[in-house]
Amino acid sequence: MNPETPLTFRHYHLLGIEDLETSEILTILETADSMAEISRRDIKKVPTLRGKTVVNLFFEPSTRTRSSFELAAKRLSADIINFSLSASSVVKGETLKDTVRNLEAMAIDALVVRHSSSGAPHYIASFCRSHVINAGDGTHEHPTQALLDAYTIKQYKKRIKGLKVVIVGDILHSRVARSNLFLLRKLGAEVVLCGPPTLLPLEFSKLGAKIEFNLDKALVGADVVMMLRLQRERQKANYFPSIREYRQLYCLTQERFKLAKKDAIIMHPGPINRGIEIDSALADSVQSVILRQVENGVAIRMAVLYLLLGGKERESSD
């Protein structure tokens, strides 16, 4: 029979990067590498998760993440249903717990949850039998985004350890920044956070990041520049005087990008506000790997679904 390498992934849910071991992160990245091949075939499907049911439970708008999970599940032959806020009983006043309980009564195996409240997936995981995957919770974590970012960086740079990664923009509201910070630090990269002081709390230095308010200074010698979207829907106060001023200080322009290393790559979790956080031409340039990130997202989510849904029912370790 074929050799059987046991895995080092023991979690029942994927709620965040913070509670993953480094070896578990590497297992996900390695599994994704094998999954990527499936999407390049003529028949983009394997029978692995036949008979499993996955529910996309999205309480916030999303195109990329939702369709990425949907494709990932379908390529592994799982059944998937989409559940979005506007079409649900939530608008009729049903509680989150009741919604999940009702879905579970229909014998599902996994829930992919996006919610505007930080900790919502953790709350769901506390009472439900299904595997819970956090697809973004408020301003807390977005683990699969950080995993696909790391996978993309590895593809271009062959390593993560020792790289200088600059994350720019609205750090305060960004779950992408948090998950990336946890992950990149675990894998040994240097992480520099950059943004206006109102959107960049100094507390982040306690998590192992360097803080820099001046974008030009931050960019010097960078291997990876990750631009974040200005999340105007979460900004209840005025964090900066005007979009125009923000653009002047924190927009990644051709001129500024020259400060980074010659072979630096540009990343963005999307959706992009062209001309606000990044020059439109730069977003489409050869150094931009934004579409590769989207492509890799499917492989990463296939890996996560495979690792969580395979094997016998395990004792919950979360």
Binding site: T27, E30, T31, M35, L307
Partner: peptide
Amino acid sequence: LETQHMVQK
């Protein structure tokens, strides 16, 4: 399976 196996290429 009690433990899953690494998917390889």
